[in-house]
Design a protein around this nucleic acid. Sequence first.
DNA 1: CAATTGACTCTACAACCGTTGAGCGAAGCT
DNA 2: AGCTTCGCTCAACGGTTGTAGAGTCAATTG
Lengths: 196, 196
Amino acid sequence: MDEPTTRAAKRAATAQRILEAAQVEFGERGLEGTTVRAIAQRAGVDPSLVIQHYGSKNDLFALAARLDRESTDDDVAAHLFEVLDVRLGELPPETRALVRSMLTAPEATRAMKNFLDERVVNLARSSDDGDAELRAALTVSSILGLTIARHFLELDALADISEPQIETVLRPWLTAALGDDTALPPAPDPRTRAEP
Amino acid sequence: MDEPTTRAAKRAATAQRILEAAQVEFGERGLEGTTVRAIAQRAGVDPSLVIQHYGSKNDLFALAARLDRESTDDDVAAHLFEVLDVRLGELPPETRALVRSMLTAPEATRAMKNFLDERVVNLARSSDDGDAELRAALTVSSILGLTIARHFLELDALADISEPQIETVLRPWLTAALGDDTALPPAPDPRTRAEP
DNA sequence: CAATTGACTCTACAACCGTTGAGCGAAGCT
DNA sequence: AGCTTCGCTCAACGGTTGTAGAGTCAATTG
């Protein structure tokens, strides 16, 4: 909350404010549904400044939704763990922006497809089952469906799921989907949280 | 393919053509992404005629996506069967329109939430498990995720799944999710298809 | 302190949107 | 045949959108 003193620092600070405002708006109304003016207003700034900073609305969206996710190649367990953990609390704003526009913005569709395709092959290569890829795709798309149902549709039955319920129902279920040889990570630790 | 002779019949025919064009457009680009002009062009008609027929773009969308789904109260098995069956082929155009706009159009979000909420309670009431509702929600949202991953994101691993694969992998998996006491319907019969 | 840079606002524009009302021409009625 | 009905097109309007360019004023520099 410290006030920036130098001019460049202040500029960087407002750029950050604009980006965060954009993530909130994109995450709530999607790429087409949010206007540059709405982003500007949320950031307390003139609409043209948004363009001056990020070039265009689409460029800003690409940054806000992290359309260029680096293909993390670490192990399968960490991936799933992160997703499961994240799903218990709030979704990170860039994920919200991406998922929200996933079905209507072609760039977002492509980014999400690539992201999930990678996860599937990562998951599948730990097993040598013939149906490993299909099982992995099942697991991944289930997590996607769960995320959408809980955080975007807000299904009643998923409104408040407790940690024990996750352990007794959801975890064994996903374990079954992956096959017994693939181990899921241990119970999530709510204190650690990933940092972008 | 018979040409309509009476005037009212011709009017009804163009109305139907407009509705179907709207379903295609809405299903491909979403509510906000499709313009009345695009619908009109696909139907080979003047844009204003679209409004004259359906009042407004939003009213047309409500019809095209069947936002007012009657709460079918028949048994659980038939429901799941229908969804599973339908997922093997193409998605019906009104479903495509609804799912496509599910995350960006509030009316569509509400309609989808209500639809899925109902399915969950229908599924849950066949079992008396304490976690029955959560299990049902898991199943339903998995099917949703699968539908999205296959028909909208077009994940590589789900591009062409064969009927035997469905039987050996997907069906037992969903059976496990619901619990052993709840029986899924037998193998789908590709000849029977639901009619709107 | 004077000059200059640059972060930001103001104004405006061209494109596109959903929607309206008038008009046309053929089908229907008597 | 003459009059009416009506399915449809044409032209246009008001509003909103993303974005460009000029201007403003305070911080920086010499």
